[in-house]
């Protein structure tokens, strides 16, 4: 594994200038596209459109600016493995939180009121109009 003889710039892949410029231009175009996409309403898919564009942009950066396409394949495994664990972490937490969230909301409505919201009420409005019970500092409060 360490038997390769090294010649000058044989240590790593040199990225051609043309590729670098093209990737940069693609990234700029995609940034414009992602801003432009906010002019259109895709309904519930807005987030997915924005994320898809971001993923494409990030992939371009990783593959070309970070040379991953020309790099040791194990580095790709490391990177992709990391993303798998990130999705695992976010995915399972997200699955859980949407399940118990209604309990959380009830808890906050019943017992706990955000202190700053309370202050706002003092300044701006009355409780009756907001339809909220008078805020007492909950036992979990700070």
């Amino acid at each position: 594994m360490s038997t390769e003889t090294h010649e000058s710039h044989g240590v790593a892949h040199v990225m051609p200038m043309k590729v670098l410029i093209n990737i940069f231009l693609a990234l700029v175009v995609l940034t414009v596209v992602t801003v432009g996409a906010t002019l259109f309403d895709f309904g519930p898919y807005n987030l997915y459109v924005a994320m898809a564009i971001a993923v494409v942009k990030a992939s371009l950066v990783v593959l070309y600016f970070m040379h991953l396409r020309y790099d040791n394949p194990f580095n790709s495994i490391v990177f992709v493995g990391c993303l798998v664990f990130v999705s695992l972490f976010i995915g399972l937490s997200l699955t859980d939180t949407t399940q118990y969230q209604h309990k959380m909301n009830n808890l906050q409505a019943e017992k706990v009121a955000a202190p700053n919201v309370e202050k706002m009420h003092e300044g701006g409005g009355s409780h009756e109009e907001h339809g909220e019970p008078p805020a007492g500092k909950g036992s979990l409060g700070n």
Partner: peptide, 9 residues
Amino acid sequence: TPTLPNAPA
């Protein structure tokens, strides 16, 4: 009175 987004009135 200050204008606060969270204040309904």
